[in-house]
């Protein structure tokens, strides 16, 4: 049976795809509309990608164990984190020498390299490893393979 969170993930994929299509369509329009397309792209891309992630992760097996309380909210947080990061990246301009520094980088560069790169690169694999461990123990017992 399809799980409810998986249905939500599928709708996120569909809506994200439509959003990306509209964002590309806006690029053919006058500059003011095109700017709106950039923001739409910043919101749609993480919705689509994390939706696909959820489609794979939120299967019936995961929904039987502890991950069912954690994974859906972790993915919602990831969408929000990435969307906010992309929106800030779109809105920011060229850095100045007086800009605040984060771990040695101007904030906009730190946002990209640390916020959109390093943070999910470290946390997501650990989330996967945790979900793999805590999934109801039926992995072998289910005898699917």
């Amino acid at each position: 049976m399809a799980t409810r969170p998986r249905d939500v993930a599928r709708w996120a994929v569909v809506l994200g795809t439509v959003g990306v299509a509209l964002a590309y369509g806006a690029a053919f329009a006058p500059p003011r509309v095109a700017r709106g397309g950039e923001i739409l792209m910043a919101l749609s891309t993480p919705t689509l990608l994390v939706g696909v992630l959820g489609l794979g992760a939120l299967d019936a097996r995961a929904m039987r164990g502890r991950p069912r309380r954690v994974l859906p909210w972790a993915f919602v947080a990831l969408v929000l984190w990435l969307a906010l990061g992309f929106a800030l990246a779109v809105a920011s301009g060229a850095p100045r020498a007086t800009d605040a520094r984060i771990a040695g980088l101007p904030w906009a560069a730190a946002l990209v390299l640390y916020g959109l790169g390093a943070v999910p690169a470290v946390l997501l694999p650990l989330l996967y490893a945790w979900a793999h461990t805590t999934t109801d123990g039926s992995e072998d017992g289910a005898g699917a393979s």
């Binding site: 950039e38 891309t45 992309f86 920011s92 060229a94 850095p95 020498a97 906009a108």
Partner: peptide, 29 residues
């Protein structure tokens, strides 16, 4: 590295560098 770029080519350290935001997001997608 950072002081040199900020002094001579600050746009390289902008969030989407010399790309347009849509081009950078397109790469990601």
């Amino acid at each position: 590295l950072v002081p040199l770029l900020l002094a001579h080519a600050p746009e390289m350290l902008a969030a989407t560098g010399r790309s347009t935001p849509l081009a950078a997001l397109s790469f990601y997608f």
